[in-house]
Structures are given as C-alpha cells and as structure tokens.
Computed example of a mutant assay.
Amino acid sequence: MKNNLKQRKIVSDLMLFITFIATVVALVPLFGIFGYVLTKGFFALNWDFFTSLPAPPGETGGGMANGIIGTFTLIGLASGLGVPFGIFTGIFLSEYGNNRLGRIVSFFTDILLGVPSIVVGIVVYTFVVLAMGGFSAYAGGIALAIIMYPAVTRTTEEMLKLVPNNIREAGLALGVPKWRVILQIVLPSAFRGILTGIMLAVARVSGETAPLLFTAFGNLHWSRSLSEPIASLPVLVFNYAISPYATWKAQAWAGALTLILIVLVLNASARLLISKK
C-alpha cells in the first residue's frame, strides 16, 4: 500500500513538473515577443502619436490617431455583426443541431474557420467593395466579422455543451419553454467561457492586415463616413514597416505596441466584467 502511494506521488510530481515546463515553453515566446516590441516601440510613444495624424513622407513627427480610432471602429463593426450571428449559430448547433442541417452547418463552420484571412478579404472585395463602388469601413467590418464568426460559433457551442443536461431537464420539468431555459439558464451558466471566446476572436481580428487592404484600404486623414476608406493600426504598421524612413519604422513599432496594449485592455476589461458578474 505504501509503495503504491509512493509510486502515485512520484507520477504526480513528474506530471506537475512536465506541466510546468510546458507552461514555461509556451510563455517564453509570448513574453519574448512582447518584450522585444516594448523595447522597440516604447520610446516612439508620445502625446503626438495618440493625437496627431500621420506626417507626410520624409517628415518627422506625426502619429496614428486616425489608425487607433479606425481600429476601434472596425472592431466595433465586426463585433456587432460577427458576435450575435456566432452566438446564435452556436446555440443552434448545441441545442438543436443534432440533425442533418446541424451537421451541414457544423461542416461549413469548420471550413470557414480554416479559410485564410486574405481569401476572406478578396471575397468581400468582390461582393461588397465592387458593389459599393469603393473601399469602406463597412467592407472592413464585414471581412473581420466573417473571420470572427466561426471562432465565436465554435466557442459558444462547446461552452454550452459543457453545461450539464440535468440543468436543462430541471427547467423543462418546471414547465419552462426550451427557449427560455436556453436564454435564462444555459447561456448565463456558460457566460464566462463564451465571453472568453469572444475576446479571443476580437484579439485575432485586431491584428489582421491582409483583409483590410482589400476592404477598408486605409486613410492618412480622418474618415468622415463609414462608407469611405478608413485607417487602421495594422495597415499603418504594415505601410510604415516597409517604408525607407527611420522615423516611420520607429512609429511602426509604436503602432505594434499600441495594438498589443489595446488587446490587453480589452481582455482585462472582459475579465473585470466577469469578476463583477
């Protein structure tokens, strides 16, 4: 008995050690990238960077204020389109998808999850940009929403499946309609996981550049309407990084750092919301 207990403790300690090593291996690249971007971009951050428009080529100064606002605008448009449809599809697959239609929807969701983002940009360019007669924030938001949609769908589906069936059965036994059981009991139970999935989807689309080049395109000025090209941090970082100007390259690092901080703030806000709930 003692030998068996000792053997189990050795196996437990070994697995804990392996888990610790795996965690370190996963975190080292993350902190390495963040530290490198921080050292490169921190000294290029100043008040003008957050309040001024990009400077003309070859001139010093300027900032990415329009790109920061544009990024929040595109994320808002994408979330407004992709999150509700993703949640509704996830609910359907989890609660009503045990049929042929559900299998078809699940199959195409998996395909959409693996489609390269640049392909999404080309498709939206063909069906939205050309139809509207020009690049726009709407087109960029639609492209990012398509990228968000399958991720939110899969997260919602999996989180709802983790809710025990006896909770559903208890609500149905009390005579509550199934749709109310889902909305008032099942969804709140899976709220934390669903919100985490949404934030991961937001984090993914926040750094997308390729689809925005085909849809929102970019703008060196303030956008007065959502139906015209709009600036975004990923596109500005891309354009500045390939430029021959040292000041633009420095601002590209600052833009990358700002983009990371935006994602961190959004995730921290979501975590704070969850803790208050």
Results as ranks from 00 to 15, higher is better:
1 M>S: 15
1 M>I: 10
5 L>T: 09
13 D>I: 10
19 T>I: 06
29 P>G: 08
29 P>E: 10
29 P>A: 10
49 F>D: 03
57 P>L: 14
61 G>C: 08
63 G>C: 10
65 A>K: 03
67 G>W: 04
69 I>V: 15
82 G>C: 01
83 V>R: 03
84 P>M: 11
87 I>P: 00
90 G>V: 12
93 L>P: 00
95 E>F: 05
95 E>N: 00
97 G>L: 05
98 N>A: 08
106 S>E: 15
109 T>C: 09
110 D>I: 03
113 L>C: 05
123 V>R: 04
127 F>C: 00
129 V>R: 04
131 A>D: 01
131 A>K: 07
131 A>N: 04
133 G>S: 05
134 G>P: 09
137 A>R: 04
138 Y>K: 01
143 A>C: 05
148 M>C: 02
150 P>S: 13
157 E>R: 13
161 K>G: 11
162 L>A: 12
171 G>N: 01
179 W>L: 11
181 V>C: 11
188 P>Y: 01
189 S>H: 11
192 R>C: 06
199 M>S: 14
201 A>C: 03
202 V>M: 12
206 S>Y: 08
208 E>M: 07
212 L>K: 13
214 F>Q: 09
214 F>E: 03
221 H>F: 15
225 S>P: 01
233 L>S: 05
235 V>G: 00
236 L>A: 13
237 V>M: 09
242 I>D: 00
242 I>C: 00
244 P>W: 12
246 A>M: 12
249 K>Y: 10
250 A>N: 11
250 A>C: 04
252 A>F: 13
255 G>C: 05
262 I>L: 15
267 N>E: 12
269 S>Q: 06
270 A>S: 12
274 I>L: 14
275 S>L: 02
